[in-house]
Write a protein that binds this DNA or RNA. Sequence first.
RNA 1: UGCCCCGUGGUGUAAUUGGCAACACGUCUGACUCUGGAUCAGAAGAGUUCAGGUUCGAGACCUGACGGGGCAGCCA
Length: 565
Amino acid sequence: MDEGKSTNENPIESKPKNFIYEIIDEDIRTNKLGGRVHTRFPPEPNGYLHIGHAKSICLNYGIAEHYGGKFNLRFDDTNPEKEEQEYVDSIIEDVKWLGANFEDRILYASDYFEQMYNWAVELIKKGKAYVCDLTANEIRATRGTLTEPGIESPYRNRSVEENLNLFERMRKGEFPNGSKTLRAKIDMASPNFNMRDPIMYRIVHAEHHRQGDQWCIYPTYDWAHGLEDSFERITHSICTLEFENHRPLYDWFLDELGIYHPQQIEFARLNLSYTVMSKRRLLQLVKDSYVDGWDDPRMPTISGYRRRGYTPEAVRNFTEIIGVAKRDALTDISLLEFAIREDLNKNAQRAMAILRPLKVIMTNYPDQVEELDAVNNPENPIAGTRKVPFTKELYIERTDFMENPPKGYHRLMPGGEVRLRYAYIIKCEEVIKNSQGEVIELRCTYDPETKSGTGSSKKKVKGTIHWVSAKHAVETEVRLYDRLFSSENPGAEENWLEHINPNSLEIIPSALVEPFLKNAKPGNRFQFERHGYFCVDTKYTTSEKLVFNRTVTLKESWGKTENQK
RNA sequence: UGCCCCGUGGUGUAAUUGGCAACACGUCUGACUCUGGAUCAGAAGAGUUCAGGUUCGAGACCUGACGGGGCAGCCA
């Protein structure tokens, strides 16, 4: 991942990027963890990764890279009922795409099950864990409330021998789901709920996506997570705020076991305006078909953004821009849009595309095809130029003509002039309407003295519009995306699903694009001039028809000022 | 109601660890422009939730209030 301009060569001398870097700087200075830095990204394979995960990945990998340390990808696969191989595969793909380098370290918590089991036995032997026969309801009922302590389980004081025996039989599969748990013996009166004899193992007779039916007891997250980090000798276990209250429990386990102790640091998860960011909700959008899969371009998933045309560079840069802190915040989507525009402006090939065509006939133009030169990317001269065919019959954008334009409109109008990009200045001489009174065609004249690039034009016009030659244009499908939700913070609404934006997808079945685009390949990105950035869809594009996804619009200042008038 | 965390322009983050608020996005001007884009120049916008306290000096430290978030899954 490229390190931005803000960071110096010497990691220890450079100014810390955020409070986590400060902590690590200090740890290195005091040699607290042997001066090592080893981070990890520990997703549960129960859904696709979203932009919030990207923040975590970039943070963790960025730290490893910055300090010359290592970065692990580790699946926290401790719940067979929710996890699937499909999710594992997608996560690996997404992390790689983002550019976080875990080398050969794709690790799985489930590979440590035997070790965890042994550690649990150790705790039982120390008298620090016991098998409890209470049902889920009974456990809930005896946990206490915010102000009252819990009640100790009647099974809390079983002998070590009995616990050992029972725990072994749990593993052997002698008991049905939910009939017994292994609990840590800590403190039912602790003000911290996590310390009220938390559950370490539950009985789940389910097939695990990697372990098959090897196990019928599964470690809970609270028991497993700190052990995983310890086992991998992670130095800094970076996680989100909601695990802050769990830290004392992880510390307790590690200390009772007397094993290597990573340092946990919590940061605020990303919330993005006009979208939801919980896997539970994203899953519902997918399962109930509000969207077309996890990689629907309207989804805030990494695969969704990828399909929409975002680049890994832009996503990384976005995570850099938003920073890292401990206060929860709602990040404005405009920061993400800035990141992708900045990238694509520099790198995207330009093209002309007509989304809503209006026919224009140049009455004084000969029956010929002229090959005009067009710049591929004004931000990058090396990108060169291309030829665009120009004929007397063209299509322009419907919105680039107005019969009765408001003040300040400087595109085409009756009797008005406008420049056709890379071509000539034309004048609208006649407006043709159908029987409904709708404008269906314009008759224009062109001024041969105004050809682009010749410097021969004495005329100046306010507007330049794009166009496409009628007989050369390629018909394609274009998909315009808008925000998926109309509420700024849908997750906070009473019924979040009611705030889905009904117009989040508009399909234009036959847009007309420049001929060179017919060779575009899925994933290729372009700027359609004056519209925005688009990429060739990887899912619906066929050899017959290209489908373009709009990644993001161009900034538009005309509409804004218009609204203020 | 108990415990934990947090509170800086519209948004996201900074502030050399106590020296009197900076950057980015957004917004608004103006210049330039064959993309109403980009670029360039500039502007507005917070006195740091509030009240006390410590100090020559507080956004930073202390106390209390207020506000926001998290925690009562055999989810993670």
